[in-house]
Design a protein around this nucleic acid. Sequence first.
DNA 1: GCTCATAGTTAGGTAGCCTAACATTTTCGA
DNA 2: TCGAAAATGTTAGGCTACCTAACTATGAGC
Lengths: 145, 145
Amino acid sequence: MSLSTDVRLLALAQSFRTTLRHAVYLSRSMDSDGELTTMQMSTLSMAAEEPLRVSRVAANLGIRVPSATEQIIKLEQAGLVLRQPDPTDSRAVLVQLTDKGRAAWEAASRRRNERVAALLHQLGEDDRATLAAALPIIEKLNHTA
Amino acid sequence: MSLSTDVRLLALAQSFRTTLRHAVYLSRSMDSDGELTTMQMSTLSMAAEEPLRVSRVAANLGIRVPSATEQIIKLEQAGLVLRQPDPTDSRAVLVQLTDKGRAAWEAASRRRNERVAALLHQLGEDDRATLAAALPIIEKLNHTA
DNA sequence: GCTCATAGTTAGGTAGCCTAACATTTTCGA
DNA sequence: TCGAAAATGTTAGGCTACCTAACTATGAGC
């Protein structure tokens, strides 16, 4: 990596980190009204796709398995998920959405999407196109990490 | 807002929220090695620009004033910031960086920038340009919220 | 079959956040 | 100008989410 490239990459990295931080504050302000926390939303999002193990929930949330167990038990007590033994491996536990959980997730997700959409509405069409193009690139970053 | 526009905006909003969530996990994995937490980094970043009040730290971090006081006192005990009365308003307290605090912030910031830069290095030039163009747009979102 | 690795839970402790109550200073209207 | 209300922080007490360590139970391999 040449020196001039390095400087440009570092500058972009810094901007990226700063913007990400600001976006997190924005995101947090949208979460702060509701019943479901960001972590709960994430957990339900994963389970909405397909039942998954406790260890995968922990890995995806970036927390340890005991912490994930704790949170999942709370979701279970709230009637939003079920914990059932994995038929293919009796050690494992599969977390899956209940109907109530799916409804709660969809409602919460819709509310948040509507708020973000209201912000996006204030952008120009060009800006939205640029933003849309950037999202898969950010996902790529995540994937190569 | 027309219905078709609404659907497109909602779809973009959902992608945006998902990508943001993933980016947060990425960011968190980079923070998890060091001595300074994300919140501490943010606080030092603000104070690095200019001394600021406890209430502004709280507002920028999205936490309450007592919580900010708590964190700032810890930073003070670590010798990274000073708390001094605002000369223009005796109720207020100005948080400012010590030399040690500035050095710690710069070092931590550099480490994180280098890691992100290494990821950016793996992107193509076009992707980097798109990403760079999107950052100010995301900031705009934040500003209009 | 014995050993070791894997999946989760339980137990106990820490840190960060909250609200409520308080002290101090500033602002502003009667 | 003086007293009430607002603004700025701090203190006190409690809650929640996270952690590590220790444990149970199941699967995998020599």
